[in-house]
């Protein structure tokens, strides 16, 4: 068990964004996190990596209680993440962005070793030709790759991917999926938030569904897709239902 989430709740004032969420994660697994907009998926990520301290509950990462740890402590233990809204370090080069990840990640590499790792990771995500450009000059798809490269360069045990496919065109999605598979093959455990159904259904070994902050279903992709509770949750939100149907057609 690499991660154990025990009854985690996060409240903002009167609003409960995440409510009593409990689940476990085995090493090497790809876990898909589904749910309509505002279901609390990103908030759950923020609790896991220390951006928010959960109001209640415990988070055990590799046998260590990391509840309420600051993000940098969690990062150094080997938990990396990407952001849904990309956050490149604009005035640094693409390579420097990734070197930061390697320098301050799990291994805490020195500059020279970190640069080697960065070049290797940039190659993996297909950004090596742009490594000397400023991060601000990348387009959205490239910035998503950069997010991923930074996270990977820290050589994490667990990687949280927050909608890395959103806003990419079909070819870019295919490329990214291949990359995610490669990462998984290297033994990195992954939790991914995604709205593109076919992608998440294909990649994930297991799926969790959040609605209004609560875990309403979990299981193998095929089971979850048939679950009437899940279908209702999505149909309750016309936009998502439409998206769901759209995806089936692809």
């Amino acid at each position: 068990m690499i991660l154990q989430v025990d009854n985690v709740t996060k409240q903002f004032g009167g609003l409960t964004a995440v409510k009593n969420v409990t689940f476990g994660l085995e090493e090497g697994e790809i876990l898909g996190l589904l749910g309509p907009n505002g279901a609390g998926k990103t908030t759950l990520f923020n609790c896991l990596n220390g951006v928010y301290a959960p109001t209640m509950g415990r988070i055990i990462f590799r046998g260590q209680d990391v509840t309420g740890y600051r993000p940098y402590r969690v990062a150094r233990l080997g938990l990396a993440r990407t952001h849904q809204i990309v956050r490149p370090l604009n005035e640094l080069s693409v390579r420097e962005n990734v070197v930061v990840g390697a320098c301050y990640g799990r291994e805490g590499l020195g500059l020279r070793a970190a640069t080697r790792v960065a070049d290797e990771v940039l190659e993996l995500v297909g950004l090596h030709e742009r490594s000397h450009q400023l991060a601000s000059s990348l387009n959205v798809a490239q910035k998503k790759r950069l997010e991923m490269a930074r996270a990977l360069a820290s050589h994490p045990y667990l990687l949280l991917l927050d909608e890395v496919l959103a806003g990419l065109n079909t070819a870019e999605v295919m490329g990214m999926l291949a990359t995610i598979r490669k990462i998984c093959e290297r033994g990195v455990t992954i939790i991914m938030i995604e709205h593109i159904m076919h992608a998440i259904m294909n990649l994930s070994h297991r799926i969790l569904v959040l609605n209004y902050g609560e875990l309403i279903a979990q299981g193998a992709p095929a089971e979850v897709a048939q679950d009437p509770v899940v279908i209702e949750a999505y149909l309750g939100n016309p936009e998502m239902a439409e998206k769901l149907l759209e995806e089936e057609e692809i």
């Binding site: 993000p71 990062a75 320098c103 301050y104 500059l111």
Partner: peptide
């Protein structure tokens, strides 16, 4: 490496912390 961490903070402090910069 220390300086690189500082520049990461300059660009986006929260993102820097998420990457492990103390």
């Amino acid at each position: 490496k220390f300086g690189l961490g500082l520049m990461a903070i300059r660009e986006d402090e929260d993102a820097a912390e998420v990457m492990g910069v103390v």
